[in-house]
Amino acid sequence: MLTPELKILIYRTMYQVQQWEKKLLQFLDDGLVSGFYHAGRGHEALEVASMLALRQDDYLLYDHRGCGHMIAKGMDMVSLYGDFLANDKGSTKGLGAGIVHIADPDRGVLGQSGTLGGGHVLAAGAGLSIKLRGTDQVVVNFFGDGAANRGTFHEGANAAGAWKLPVIYIVQNNGWAISTPVDKVTAVKSFAERAAGYGMRGVSIDGMDPFAVYEATVSAVEQARRGGGPTLIEGKVVRFRGHFEGDPGTYRPEEELAQGKAQDPVITTRARLIAEKTADEQQLTALEEEVNAEVDAAAAEALTGTMPGRERLAEGAYA
């Protein structure tokens, strides 16, 4: 149920994600991060609200678009910064090479595949594990509209549907597979239409509306927990920045981007909370100042980490 407290928590977490990323982009500008980063601005509502519908022991296979889902799942901001800084403060203790190779099993964050679309089959595997162990956990797999067209989606979705696995597939449909418009490479109007081919429920939602996202995810989670099988959720979102940092995005019409930014989920949710009298300006300002201090402290701590030495090159490798 979307209580006033939960609505404020959703906003707080989205604002936290926005500010965390803003600081990471400063690290990039300062040359402190060696790897690529694919910003999540515009995707906060879909990533955050869906994760707040889960339990800590539920599983997440994230995609590379931002880190909102990881933060909302409970990952420590210091460890996330440490992963990008490639130092021992990170969740991989510096072995992630400064790109998104992040894992936190205690919070159900399983990591991601080395290639886009690999999470589809990994999610089915995690779902099968849940079913064989007889728990009521669920696994959520995030991916973009481009990765939705990989052959691995058919393999994973077919297995999940055939065996009624507790998997929730979430397509972050921002309309662009890097620089390719989705309608140029996808036959259906909505990815949710594909669900019927795998015997699962498919829903298409406004991914910029966190409250709609939360309710759709709760419904999918409840179905999965009671053995009702998987759900495919298409969240329609807007990517505010280039595909990766350094991509000028000149292939996108300026009007389209302007219209998208007018739907900024952080700004619109804040205004909505005030209009609904769920919170007032003073309360939200105090909340934001608290978050800003937390982000600054996390960034400062992450910068105190040290890089891994050569003695760790073979760590985790087995012959």
Rank of each mutant, 00 (worst) to 15 (best):
A196T: 06
R241K: 13
A271G: 09
R150V: 13
F153R: 08
D83S: 06
V185S: 08
N158W: 09
V203A: 05
R194N: 08
Y169P: 00
A45C: 09
E47F: 01
W163R: 11
H120M: 09
K189E: 06
L303I: 01
G90C: 09
Q18I: 00
M14T: 07
L284Y: 02
V185T: 11
I178Y: 01
V237R: 02
G229W: 00
Q172M: 13
G202Q: 12
I170Q: 05
L61W: 00
G316N: 03
M208Q: 14
V218S: 08
S91T: 15
H243C: 05
A298Y: 08
M75N: 12
S204Y: 01
G260D: 12
K22C: 07
K189R: 13
V33E: 03
K23P: 05
I170A: 07
Y251K: 10
W176F: 07
E311S: 11
E44G: 06
S113W: 11
A124L: 05
Q18G: 06
S190E: 12
Q112D: 05
N141L: 09
V238D: 12
F244N: 03
G134M: 12
R201H: 14
D106H: 02
P105C: 02
H120R: 01
V100C: 04
D88K: 06
E5H: 12
G229K: 09
E47Q: 15
E294T: 11
V291K: 06
A177N: 13
P210F: 10
L28F: 06
L54Y: 04
K22W: 03
G144T: 04
D104R: 00
A147S: 12
T306F: 10
M208R: 08
G119M: 06
D206T: 13
Q19H: 13
Q16I: 00
T115V: 15
I267Q: 11
G242Q: 10
Y81D: 10
V203G: 02
A195P: 00
A258T: 15
L28M: 09
R201K: 14
L24N: 07
T268D: 03
E155D: 15
A314C: 11
V17L: 02
L95K: 08
I178C: 01
A86F: 00
G156C: 08
